[in-house]
Write a protein that binds this DNA or RNA. Sequence first.
DNA 1: TCTGGGGTCCTAGGACCC
DNA 2: TCTGGGGTCCTAGGACCC
Length: 428
Amino acid sequence: MSQPIFALIDCNNFFVSCEKLFRPDLEGRPVVVLSSNDGCVVARSNEAKALGIPMAAPAFKFLHTLKDHNVVQFSANFELYGDISSRITNLLTSITPHIEVYSVDESFLDLSELHISDYTQWAAMVRDQVFKYIGVPVSIGIATSKTLAKLAAERAKKEPELGGVLSLITSSREQTDYYLQRTPIQDVWGIGWRLAPKLKAEGLHNALDLRQFSTKHASQLMGVHGRQLVAELNGTTCLPLQKHHKPQQQIMRGRQFGEDTNQFSVIEAAITNLAAKATAHLRREQRLARQAMVIIRTNRNKPGYRKLSQAVQFGTPTADTGNICATLIQALEEIFSGHELYHKADVMLYDLIPAQALQTDLLGTVNPARNDRETARMRAVDSLNGRYGTNHVHYASQDLSQAWRPRFHLGSPRYTSSWAELPVLKPV
DNA sequence: TCTGGGGTCCTAGGACCC
DNA sequence: TCTGGGGTCCTAGGACCC
């Protein structure tokens, strides 16, 4: 098998770029996108970055900066971002089917079968295409490992003279070292705010230092992960392209409420909605859950913080929304107390098995008729929702309350996914 | 400035067993 | 038989990502 060649296509300031697609007047202005409940800054335009607003900064801590510099703020419009993201994925898939959609704004491609003579030129061409057809600026990094491709894309984004693309495939050792050295340790993929200070204490300040670090020492400090990281920085692939994302160990859905609550019915509605989302995902993955957990917690930033959880086991593994909801609500009753204000709820499905396993391995515990009914019911629900929109058909208890839903005060229209919210052209 | 969002995986350590 | 072994299961918290 030939050596893999990875390209990382990384959208610049993705959420902000999506908002700017329909608001050309925002060009040159500082713009931020806020997470659910307008809590954290999750995307920043270059102008906002220049104001010193960090990624994931709590918005309330930067009220002055936001106000003083007239920063344009948006509540996250995930429907819009998801739609733009799938357009980019479609375009990239037309280039090669060897694609791993890593996140909403990043994809890895394996280029090893594409017969490209000049990677830099190729990357520049792809970058132009994405901008021309979708309107989102991207950075592209190319290398023989994902970690290096990621690093190359990062340099491409930060160093204007690169024009948004950097290939380390044909570059000399000295050139590669140059870019590694210019990458601060905390910008290396897999090094977060916890590991960075530890590594700095060891005298490692940039990616080059880490590449030259002993594998043994790296695994002592960071476990298996550290060993892989050093190898990847040396250009040896440890993380293969995951075309069909590998089955998750757990599926989790959680939300902070629009307002803290001590009402059982509000939390019941939240749990039911979260469980419906999680189980729909479970079925999409063609898996069944053997265990689930409900978690509720009070506000972490207030005294007396409490987190309560209750796990449940299913006698027969299941992906049935009704079954899972009912069981989780029972579990909720066991831990809920009306005497405290809850801030967030989570639903977790784990101990997952492939759906086919149930049919082949009956263990004498499955009632086949009941199981078939469940499957048929869920298939009908999923098919209707696929056609008429998420949540078109849902359980009555999902409507018990809307009070749990997070606030999105500064949302933009769903320009591309809702007939009622299409942009309107006006003659000037 | 190290997190007022959301999601996932990993791991250290306790309980329990041989 | 408070103990210098070793495996498994479970969970809470750690750590990372965007």
